[in-house]
């Protein structure tokens, strides 16, 4: 499986903050409630968490993107 990175579309994100609750290992909220995401490849053992965060995003702003 090719490595994937988590990216947020900042134009779609409305700071619900659910991703940071679901995947705190990778996502933290800034001082205004918007997610700051680790830019590295998501390790395979954390993939489930990444996928759940993507699926649960109320704004559908979070995506798993292949390659760089």
């Amino acid at each position: 499986m090719r490595p994937e990175r988590l990216v947020v579309d900042p134009t779609a994100c409305t700071a619900h903050g659910m991703c940071a609750e679901l995947f705190p290992e990778w996502i933290q909220l800034d001082d205004w409630g918007y997610p700051m995401i680790d830019s590295g490849d998501v390790p395979p053992d954390l993939r489930d968490h990444a996928e759940r965060a993507v699926k649960m995003c109320p704004a559908l702003a979070l995506k798993l993107r292949r390659g760089s």
Binding site: P10, T11, C13, T14, A15, D30, D31, W32, G33, Y34
Partner: peptide, 9 residues
């Protein structure tokens, strides 16, 4: 005005 970190930051 589209991205929160830009607007608020």
């Amino acid at each position: 005005g589209q991205c929160g970190p830009c607007v608020y930051g």
